[in-house]
Design a protein around this nucleic acid. Sequence first.
RNA 1: GCCCCUUUCGUCUAGCCCGGCCUAGGACACCUCGCUUUCACUGAGGCGACCAGGGUUCGAAUCCCUGAAGGGGCGCCA
Length: 458
Amino acid sequence: MSEVRTRFAPSPTGFFHIGSARTALFNWLYARATGGTFVLRIEDTDKERNTQEFLDVILESMRWLGMDWDEGPQVGGDYGPYFQSQRSDFYKQKVRELMDKGRAYEKDGAIWFRLEGERETVYDDFLKKEYERVHAAPVIIDDIIRGRVERAEDRDFVIVRGNGEPVFHLVNVVDDIAMKITHVIRGEDHLSNTSKHVELYKAFGVEPPKFAHIPLILKTEGSGKMSKRDRGALIEEYQSRHFLPAAVRNFLCMLGWTPKDGREILPIEDIIAQFDLADVHQANARFDERKMAFFNQEYLRALPDESFAWLAAPVLGEAKVIDDKTDEDYLQKVLALCKPKMNALDTLPNFVGYFFTEDFPIDEKALAKQSKRGDPAARCRELVPALEAAADVAPATIDALFEKLGAENGVKPTDYFAPMRLAVSGQAGGPGLHELLELLGKERVLSRVKKFVEKFAK
RNA sequence: GCCCCUUUCGUCUAGCCCGGCCUAGGACACCUCGCUUUCACUGAGGCGACCAGGGUUCGAAUCCCUGAAGGGGCGCCA
């Protein structure tokens, strides 16, 4: 076990943002890559915004993405408690320490951190008020990802609010010291505030940890970083849409980091083996939903048939496409047929619905499109007597039948494929027609084709 | 307004640290053709970028400077 200790310190707000997930992921990856320890600490200092329910969202999402923590809620550890709401006495003690050292003072009911340096009163154009500007020596941050960053803090800042609650900057640093965190890996949005944190470390007489500020995930379109209202921004969305967690995790890894071996889709063990903080990019990445979908599709296709069936059945159950009475053997056959054509589990109910009901919709667009090139209902009408006469709907039978009908009616045999598919499935695409017909069986095929003729024949 | 970070195809990126192997490679998306008597998979090809301007150098995507653009921070939010 190495000395490396990373942490993810979320604030339970009721949702798990994709950016937070990636921050957690990089912390987790680095701990795993170095044989270190990954700590989960809950920053619930803002009591009004935190509930048990909100906490569960985070813990569940972490587990879903396969990020296990070595210390933290539910698992304990030697540096607890891991909830900031349970550490107030400790914070009070550390604030006392700063006051004793003359590095903190009370003003307007709050407690402020005192910077060292010459002071002058200045008017702030941006905040539209006067403040005491401090000419403090610049702080040097030796960032693993960004290199040397120099920044001077120029005004005292609040560390304990008027209501007695400690502020993020204070508790974050105090806890990182107490929990012996060696690497602080977080979003670039914290980079500017890092000078505050380093000032605190110095005031406590502690060597700051190594910092690594990772780039942000930007909106697909428009300006700014992903916000919770953006499509694809919340991990819950992927969960409810039945994305494969390994796919989401793999995709997240590729946003801001690339493996040396050039692969994009690779097992997490291989990612861990290659991951290094120094290789994390410096520039922000724009989120691309389509590439996320591609990763998901690749993972889905790679699934063994049993695993696919195991995942698919609940999705179909939830959508009420199947129930307890559904024949298991038939279900397995349908899933085996559809698996190679699927690109996402959330489209599955729609994709296979017609296998389980006679009451399925006909895709209007597909119908309109086909009608432009021919008359699907007419082709189907020609099919009815031929199907009635046929012994079965096996591939060879169907081929012969199309051949014969094409010659009789002056059209190509292939002209029957699309209309027939539309009649029996209501869709323009799907599994191979031959297999599809055979699985449905002659009776259902015939009745569906008849029904289609009745409904759409001119 | 002040401060910090960033800048290669539409998007994710390789290359950049240690200048020539870069007529800039890959992936997603898009387009074309082939395979498949349907759908899909797949195969082959195509489209498409070094932010701009100055330097340094025999030579710059790679080094330096300036500018522009994008992002972030400046809160008794985290």
